Simulated assay, not measured.
Amino acid sequence: MNVKAILLTLFLPITAFAQGFAGLGTDADGFSVPQPDPQFAFPADHGAHPDYRIEWWYLTANLTAADGTPYGLQWTLFRSALAPETGEGWTAPQLWMGHAAVTTPENHYVGERLARGGIGQADVVDDPFQAWIDDWVLEGDWETLRMTASAPDFAYDMALTAQGPLIFHGDAGYSVKSAAGQASYYYSQPFFAIEGTLQLPDGDIAVTGNAWLDREWSSQPLAENQTGWDWFSLSFDDGNKMMGFRLQQTDGNNFTSATWITPDGQTTPYTDGALVATPLAVNDDDVPVGWRVELPEKGVDVTVAAINENAWMTTSVPYWEGPVTVTGSHTGVGYLEMTGYE
């Protein structure tokens, strides 16, 4: 077995979690599992939860340059535990994976980092908050954050400022993912203003925009019959926002969930069936890059279209992730993640 094969074997739990593929419906195997009526404690819950099997810190941003060109940006750190036990140094059972990307209308640049826990190469600490893998860093007090990443074809250095409260999805942060009751703890900061510099092959570009940071952890977030997901984070021009996902099932049905977010941070959760997401167009790889998204109770009937149809994450486990435009009953921008299509 070569080095790459060994790494992929070690990272199978985290890659499966991050992309919503097989493995997320397996038993929790002694790990903690989310329970209803969560009691979050900050800043501690911004940090890692090693007694849970899988976890992420996931930031996406819609950016604009001075000439009006749209860009997308991603910074993600995934944690996966091989076992519920703790350990130090090389005996620590934590595995880490980082994904970073910059999307332009013409190109999609991707970087990936893999690390073992316990040796200082990657970790997340809560106070002061710092998440890192090698030299990729997300740090600050959650009111303000600095974010950096680099890869052979790109780099970025961004400053983020929160302009609204944290948002808790599902039932006060307890996010149900299947009819059988699988769930995760899930909250977001969708109100970040972001500014900084993209370093691309054609030169440095100053950008501004808005960013959305997701926090989620669980040990068995999907059911055995669920194979992937379509996830939308939409920021409308009227100040409202919406998170919604569609979990694909082997029987051809889908499980859906959504959160409506007002400009001042008030939320309305929607359970299975309230959100409807219908593919409209596919790219050359048969990945749906155009969608009709409906939330009738809020009068939402929009078309979501990729800025770059080829925003494929060429990482250890591939998936599609990129910025989108929103037109129809509401207008705006957002991000779309799709798994289970390779």
Rank of each mutant, 00 (worst) to 15 (best):
D272R: 09
A61E: 07
D202K: 14
D45G: 01
W96L: 02
A281P: 01
G23N: 12
W90V: 09
E112P: 03
G209M: 05
D153E: 15
A81E: 12
P105G: 10
V326M: 06
L24G: 15
F11N: 15
D214C: 03
P201M: 14
N253W: 04
Q19W: 13
D37H: 14
A193V: 01
R116C: 02
V289E: 12
A172T: 09
W229M: 08
S184M: 08
F245E: 10
G140F: 00
D27P: 07
A81T: 06
L200V: 04
E106M: 10
D214A: 04
N310T: 12
T256P: 05
K241F: 03
S175C: 06
A18M: 11
G322P: 05
L275V: 02
G98N: 13
T103W: 09
D264R: 11
D237S: 14
Q220G: 05
G328H: 09
E195A: 14
H169Q: 11
V3K: 15
G228R: 11
L234T: 04
V276W: 04
Y174N: 05
F40I: 03
D237E: 15
S184D: 05
W56D: 02
V276L: 13
G87H: 07
W312G: 02
T278I: 11
P128A: 07
N254Y: 14
G252H: 09
P165M: 10
L7C: 08
W142V: 00
L138A: 06
G328Y: 10
W57L: 04
A193F: 01
A274I: 01
L166D: 09
P221K: 13
N240L: 07
G89H: 08
L73W: 05
E55H: 05
Q189V: 02
T161V: 11
S184C: 07
G68A: 08
I307N: 12
T339E: 09
D67S: 07
T331R: 14
D301M: 08
A61F: 03
I205N: 10
W96S: 01
G72Y: 06
G118S: 07
F255T: 02
W75K: 09
S233C: 08
S235W: 01
G89M: 04
E297V: 11
N308L: 09
G25V: 02
A172C: 02
S218F: 05
A122P: 01
Q130Y: 00
D272Y: 07
G111M: 12
A16K: 06
